[in-house]
Amino acid sequence: MLLIECPWCGPRAETEFSYGGEAGIARPADPDALSDAEWADYLFYRSNPKGAHRELWNHDHGCRRWFGVERDTATYRIERSYVLSHTGSDAATGSDAATNAGTGYSSGNGD
């Protein structure tokens, strides 16, 4: 069970959160201008990497806020949680609100 750092509430168990998929999938500004293939890419295609992954989580049994998490999909190690940017749809540029490095919980070998 993952331990996820909510930028507002601190480290909490995975069961307090819901997952929101890959972060940084910006809704096209003008969907009408897109071809069907481009629209499908936005709708359905995800990077699905084996490794570093930026993803959205919601602390829905807590503060109900959405935030970003950088997690490795193979090791499940969480690099950091971050507050989503308020400058636009790409949540990637959010400020680094919290990392798990100091907690000893999720860092690779705990030291």
Partner: peptide, 13 residues
């Protein structure tokens, strides 16, 4: 598990 993962292991809940 709701989240993406390649771990061949899941969460206890």
């Amino acid at each position: 598990d709701a989240y993406n993962g390649y771990g061949q292991r899941g969460s206890f809940p």
